[in-house]
Design a protein around this nucleic acid. Structure first.
Length: 638
RNA sequence: GGGCCCGUAGCUCAGCUAGGAUAGAGCGCUGGCCUUCUAAGCCAGUGGUCCGGGGUUCAAAUCCCCGCGGGCCCGCCA
């Protein structure tokens, strides 16, 4: 367990109370709360103590026994505790200096092996802003797990088996050349071909439906949808007229549904020509996606091809095993979970929502090809096996709650109990654009690339205002802004995308934090300029520990610094980055107010200056550590 | 029809897990602060039926129930 000053004080107090009242120290924990400033530093809600509000005098005496406590005051049911500021300051300072960059960072006693599968976006178009939230969250999960000492492997599942890649392949097949033009990023190129092909296919199918429809009302409905598709088609054609016309001419001639179905079958069989074509197209897309992810500081260790699972026979083996426990359902084979769900406590163990209804899981399409969730079962087993993982975390939007639940249940039924129990669906809400959903199928998306470019431009403009010109800094600031924005909303809440939000460079933003960090760096730069000794051990010994007496602002800083270990721990346990982002904003606010008010390096009183340097050092270290976990590059100047 | 998530200031969001004192930030708007370690900053002001209604409780934004509004899911899609 990392050093936690606040925990030391809580423990000291609860030990004293438990000794006095003869109760378990742990039962006191829930009674602690941090009060408003004017009511002290820590409060115990007396009615929450096991023996209620009785024995108040004895409790007060007991608490006063703790050396970190200066004063205790009872108002109604609140027992307000004021800390002995110099003693507590010393505790906080020494904790920080002893653990350096590790201050507040929780350490797992027994390191775990963790696989994080994330992004896993369809390999048929560039990443959009929704996938960016996944990428930001997934890389945060990987980073914080590494920080606590766990072994982490990140994986990207390339979903290349299925209808969407078949559509892309159908489009590619009509073209003589797959290579993108020089000035087009390969994933954007693939995305365009896919959108063109898909839109044409949808138009063809809608026109057929229109011919067969008799109801006037339905006809009008179809016509309306068709009009919107045609508008999309016109827009797509503008981007690449030749390609659009080629694909359109060729697809007009054929039965597209049969073609798609054939491609899917051939690809699952590994038929040479189709496989090479599909792999080539998907590889191009993945290449572009990987470039974007690297730029976005979301690293992938292993790229898993879904088709490999099919070709290697792993999917077949799972299907064979599933067949033995399947039953007849709607004319095909399916896994029914009813009996399993009747087992006492199974929902808790597999983290399945209490009243979530789970329909049977269908094994195969009538044409014999496999289905996504079934393939995912063999992939889940692979993820555990290959890394010898204790936990596998799937970062997947909440809309997939049901298939993810089916996945765990199926694993359990196959006898993979440990895997089922340790497969976590890390669920988050999607990104909305002005209330509307993006459609990659029609090429209507806000790409992460465009957001990053815009952020970079915005950062350059801000830099130029300050007479600075640095592409590298603009790039880092821009990326930090986007990542921070996506990480600062609680994952269970939907994010409303707007350029104004993403490109906010003022308070409550990464640029603001980077700026604060750069200020702390500036302080140390100045100190070195003036030949001021920065040996922390020495500084601590000679620091003025009374510098918070009668000074609210300074005391507030010490208090906030003491709260970081709790913050970090909660963020790790809940895997919620917004707990850290909220905290560091508060820390930066407090630091900036103070910075404006008092000199630090230029402080004439030596021992006072030392205390101030420790505060600055602490802010610097906490920000540096938090940046690393959030995937933000710490910049010394800004 | 059933399920999951969300609803807090004009806008974007904290706070809800574990009930606790006068519900907090940012943006916006009004006014002020650069000869000092970085003004992407600081200070002051402005702004709230915590979606509505019940219930539990000494105490509810927080827990429970019933509604309302929004998003998502309930496919031989992924």
């Amino acid at each position: 367990m990392a050093v936690n000053p606040l925990e030391i004080v809580r423990k000291c107090i609860s030990t004293e109370i438990s000794r006095e009242l003869g109760i378990e120290p742990n039962t006191i924990r829930g009674a602690f709360t941090i009060p408003r400033e004017e009511y002290g530093d820590l409060t115990i809600v007396l009615s929450k103590l096991p023996k209620g509000g009785s024995y108040i005098d004895r409790v007060v005496k007991a608490v006063e026994n703790c050396s970190y406590v200066m004063k205790v005051d009872v108002i109604g049911m609140y027992m307000n505790i004021w800390f002995n500021r110099p003693r507590f300051t010393e505790l906080v300072f020494s904790s920080i200096i002893a653990s350096k960059a590790g201050y507040g960072v929780y350490k797992e006693e027994k390191k775990k092996r963790v696989v994080v599968e994330y992004v896993s976006a369809n390999p048929i178009h560039p990443l959009h802003i929704g996938a960016a939230r996944n990428a930001a969250l997934g890389s945060f999960i990987a980073n914080i797990n590494r920080a606590v000492g766990n072994d982490v492997q990140t994986r990207f599942y390339i979903n290349d088996v299925g209808r969407q890649v078949a559509i892309l392949t159908l489009g590619i097949k009509q073209l003589s050349n797959v290579e993108p033009p020089k000035d087009v990023k390969s994933d954007h190129w693939i995305g365009l071909i896919y959108a063109i092909t898909n839109t044409i296919i949808e138009i063809i199918s809608l026109k057929k439906r229109l011919e067969l429809e008799y109801s006037e009302e339905k006809k009008r409905e179809i016509q309306k949808e068709l009009d919107s598709l045609l508008a999309d088609a016109a827009r797509l054609r503008e981007q690449a007229p030749d390609i659009f016309d080629t694909i359109l001419d060729k697809l007009k001639e054929v039965d597209v549904e049969r073609e798609i179905s054939k491609i899917m079958k051939d690809y699952e069989k590994g038929e040479k020509e189709i496989s090479e074509l599909a792999r080539k197209a998907v590889s191009l897309c993945i290449e572009g996606i990987n470039q974007t992810l690297k730029r976005f500081k979301a690293e992938i260790d292993i790229w898993d091809w879904e088709s490999d699972l099919v070709w290697s026979g792993e999917v077949d083996r799972v299907i064979e095993a599933l067949k033995r426990i399947s039953s007849e359902y709607k004319g095909t084979l399916a896994i029914d979970f009813k009996q399993l769900l009747n087992i006492e406590g199974i929902r808790d163990r597999l983290r399945i929502p209490k009243s979530l209804e789970i329909p049977p899981l269908i094994l195969l399409r009538s044409d014999g090809t496999s289905l996504y969730t079934v393939r995912d079962i063999s992939y889940s087993i692979k993820k555990f096996r290959e890394y010898n993982a204790d936990i596998v975390i799937n970062v997947i939007a909440s809309e997939q709650t049901l298939p993810q639940a089916q996945l765990r249940l199926a694993l359990y039924m196959l006898g993979h109990h440990r895997e089922a129990e340790n497969l976590i669906h890390y669920s988050y809400e999607i990104v909305n654009i002005e209330g509307a959903r993006m459609s990659s199928r029609r090429g209507r998306i806000v790409t992460l690339d465009s957001v990053l470019e815009e952020a970079k431009i915005r950062a350059s403009v801000e830099l130029e205002k300050r007479g600075m010109k640095s592409e590298e800094i603009a790039e880092n600031v821009g990326i930090a802004a986007v990542r921070f924005y996506l990480l600062s909303v609680t994952p269970s809440r939907p994010v409303k995308f707007s350029w104004d939000n993403v490109l906010n460079f003022e308070r409550n933003s990464a640029p603001y934090l980077l700026y604060t960090f750069a200020r702390t760096e500036g302080v140390f730069r100045k100190a070195r300029e003036l030949d001021i000794d920065l040996n922390l051990g020495k500084i601590l010994k000679e620091a003025d520990l009374y510098f918070t007496q009668n000074n609210t602002r300074r005391w507030r800083l010490v208090r906030i610094l003491s709260e970081y270990p709790d913050t970090f721990y909660r963020s790790y346990i809940e895997l919620d980055p917004s707990i850290i982002t909220t905290y560091i904003i508060k820390l930066a606010d407090e630091f900036n107010s103070w910075y404006d008010e008092e000199p630090i390096v230029l402080e004439a009183n030596e021992s006072l200056r030392k205390s101030k340097l420790i505060i600055t050092y602490a802010v610097n270290q906490i920000l540096r550590g938090a940046f690393k976990i959030l995937g933000i590059e710490a910049l010394e100047r800004l």
